[in-house]
Lab assay of single mutants.
Amino acid sequence: TFELKGKVGKVVKIAEDHYLVEVEGDKWIAYSDEKLSLGDRVMVVDVDGLKLKVKRIP
């Protein structure tokens, strides 16, 4: 999972307290300090167990 840091993915689902992002064909639970929208491109900035911390990228 640490090899996911720096990888780019996209938001595929928005849940009440987390996001579902697809990175390299796999779906992961993710969270972010900013509000994300469906389809946003994101970069993995940290890995916390099986959850990814992501940030939006242009």
Score class of each variant (00 low, 15 high):
K27G: 08
V45C: 07
V21H: 00
R41S: 14
L20H: 09
L36N: 03
I29D: 13
G25D: 09
K7T: 03
H18R: 08
R41D: 14
A15R: 06
M43T: 12
K55N: 14
D33C: 09
E22D: 05
K53E: 13
D33T: 09
S32W: 11
V42T: 07
F2E: 15
V8R: 03
D48Q: 05
V44H: 01
M43W: 03
R41L: 07
D33G: 06
E34K: 07
F2M: 15
E24P: 01
E24T: 03
V23S: 01
K55Y: 07
Y19A: 11
K5W: 15
V23A: 03
G25Q: 12
P58R: 04
D48K: 04
H18W: 12
E24M: 04
K5Q: 15
A30F: 01
G25P: 04
A15E: 08
G49D: 10
D48I: 05
Y19M: 14
G49Y: 12
L4V: 15
K51Y: 13
I14G: 06
L4Q: 05
K5L: 15
W28M: 03
F2A: 15
K10H: 12
L50V: 14
L36E: 02
G6A: 01
V54R: 00
E22I: 05
V23N: 01
R56D: 05
V47D: 04
I14H: 10
D40S: 09
E24S: 03
K35T: 08
V42N: 01
K35H: 07
L4C: 04
K27C: 05
R56A: 09
D40E: 10
K55M: 15
K7H: 04
R56G: 11
V45S: 09
S37E: 10
V45T: 07
V42M: 09
K51T: 10
K13P: 02
L50T: 13
E3I: 02
E22H: 08
D17S: 11
V8H: 11
V8G: 04
V54A: 02
E3Y: 03
T1Y: 15
L52H: 01
S37R: 08
V11T: 11
D46M: 03
D40T: 07
R56M: 12
V54W: 01
E3A: 01
L20D: 07
E34D: 13
L50P: 09
K10V: 12
L36I: 10
E34P: 07
V42L: 04
V44P: 01
F2G: 15
V45D: 14
K55A: 14
K7D: 02
K35E: 11
L4T: 05
V42A: 13
R56N: 11
K10S: 08
M43V: 15
E3Q: 02
V23Q: 01
W28P: 02
H18N: 10
V42I: 13
R56I: 10
A30G: 11
S32G: 11
V12H: 11
G25N: 08
L20E: 04
L38G: 12
S37D: 08
G39T: 07
G25I: 07
K5A: 14
K53H: 13
R56V: 12
